[in-house]
Nucleic acid binder design. Structure first.
Lengths: 237, 237
DNA sequence: AAGAAAAAGAGAGCAGTGCTCTTGCTTTTC
DNA sequence: GAAAAGCAAGAGCACTGCTCTCTTTTTCTT
């Protein structure tokens, strides 16, 4: 029988996938209200009108449900960033960077609990399965692509990094996927930029900027622009 | 009776304080093993050989216990950083910065769950009482003092920030406590450095650097040194 | 088409949680 | 010495994740 992996859908498989999706959606809604620790499998089942034990036919454990939400979150963030960056003139490096930074922050502000799920404290017993590593690197790959283009077009950090450590060993394959190579020094600076971007967002989201920074939008834009200049990307390029 | 606020200790008060301390210590030990969500009041009571309800005489709720642990964590980190930085020649700005950065990271690596408690995802229903704001700013104040000294001794960021936002309104009193003023541009760059420092530590601790960065110690030192140069602090000062 | 097999739902139950309330007991205070 | 306050313990409530059994429904095979 012709059952290609993409569309077998034996009628029962379809309703199963549908219900699986509905459970995940309901769980995501609960997550947005009560946070990860407040996510109750029973409450999800209750809202869907099914017995709590029935949910276990679809997700073997609460952690499995969380894994799905984590993957979805990574993909949601990745898609939004990719879509936004795709609409920018690829030679306008400054704009591309600002777009990625803004998209990430906007997504985080719109989905704080999902952001916390992927960039906050890891859930206690949870161990990320290998499937998550690919979606997790989507925005990272976007940044890497930008950095590679920047270096290719002659950008270089205004402050020499002077690195002594081999920082990029396991990053080779990531660069290979992006299709470019980046010099160690430039990559080193980019990792700092990466950490700073998510440090800023986490600080804002997790309350560290409360009573410290007030004009958050403008502040972030300024910081983003400054960060770009730290990797040699200047405006009006 | 001579009962100054520091040592009244009506014999019952003493045993109460002692038991309060023991509960917090046991809770901290449990926290280090199972994380914040795994912290069970009942388990703590069990280990201490008392009824779970008895614990509520000392901490009105689980959140109250967490508040204590959070304050302790801030103070523990603050003390360690302050002690380390105090032993450095105050004119050696680069060394002071590296010391603060290293101390923060080392403390975080030694107390990952406590770090997560204060710089990770905020606990869901938890609202930080005003008492926590002072311990929370100890390491921030340390950095501010360094930055102020740096600017006073003629340091300036090698890359002009070009800020347009008013970022520092509510920070005035913090600077006042440190006893110095910092120019907006310099402070702006310092906030970026602050975010980058904790971004790096969070990434390392929360697993974002898994399979990306391997020689963590050297990498962090390099990043720290680079960060210092981004605020105009150069080695061999 | 009929029977076997697989999948799905529902309910009871276990061990655990935070938290409250009531009941006794001890210590402090008047 | 009596009253007041502080403390410990236990029972109990409503909730959790998860497992087990039992029944129903759908699918696959002969």
């Amino acid at each position: 029988m012709d059952t290609p992996a993409s569309a077998p859908k034996s009628a029962r498989r379809m309703v199963r996938e549908e219900l699986t999706r509905r459970i995940a959606d309901t769980a995501r809604a609960h997550l947005a209200r009560s946070g990860p620790s407040g996510l109750s499998l029973r409450a999800v089942a209750r809202e869907l009108g099914m017995a709590s034990s029935a949910v276990y036919r679809y997700f073997p454990s609460r952690d499995a449900l969380l894994t799905t939400l984590i993957m979805d979150a990574y993909n949601s963030l990745g898609e939004e960033c990719e879509a936004a960056e795709a609409g920018v003139d690829r030679s306008d490096l400054a704009r591309r960077h600002l777009t990625i930074a803004r998209s990430t922050r906007n997504w985080a502000l719109a989905h704080p609990h999902e952001y916390a799920l992927i960039y906050g404290t890891p859930v206690p017993g949870y161990q990320a399965p290998p499937d998550t590593v690919d979606p997790a690197t989507r925005v990272t790959r976007l940044l890497l692509g930008l950095i590679a283009d920047a270096e290719a077009s002659g950008c270089h950090p205004p402050v020499d990094p002077r690195i002594s450590a081999s920082t990029t060993r396991d990053m080779e394959d990531l660069m290979e996927r992006v299709g470019t190579r980046i010099s160690p020094g430039y990559l080193f600076v980019s990792l700092g930029l990466w950490a700073q971007l998510f440090g800023l967002i986490s600080f804002e989201l997790f309350g560290q900027f409360n009573n410290v920074v007030e004009a958050r939008d403008d502040f972030f834009d300024d910081q983003a622009r400054h960060m770009a200049r730290l990797v040699g990307i200047t405006e009006g390029d």
